[in-house]
């Protein structure tokens, strides 16, 4: 498990109060109970705090779009980190 994915898993476990939660790149919001739009905002805030990145409005709102999953989110973070 990459460090990024591991941290993501830790944050999601915290967020959804589930110490057993297993997160892969293929995990989508529908796979995790309680991952609604408000939980998603909390996730965004936690990721911004953790990695010191900033998500654009469109990036925050595109959660429910087709093809969105944890992998896509991680790639986005990686691209943001690479720019710094």
């Amino acid at each position: 498990m990459s460090d990024l994915l591991g941290t993501m898993q830790e944050i999601l476990r915290d967020l959804f109060d589930d110490d057993e939660l297993i997160v892969t790149r293929e995990t989508t919001a529908d796979d995790v109970g309680g991952w609604d739009s408000l939980a998603h905002i909390n996730l965004i805030v936690a990721l911004e705090d953790e990695f010191g990145v900033r998500f654009a409005t469109a990036e925050i709102s595109s959660l429910k779009d087709e093809g969105q999953n944890v992998g896509a989110l991680l790639d986005l973070i990686e691209r943001k980190l690479a720019k710094e």
Binding site: S37, L38, I41, N42, F55, A56, T57, I60, S61
Partner: peptide, 14 residues
């Protein structure tokens, strides 16, 4: 304001 546009939050989540 990102969070106002996305979810009509009154202020920054924090």
């Amino acid at each position: 304001t990102r969070f106002f546009h996305v979810a009509k939050l009154p202020c920054a989540p924090a």
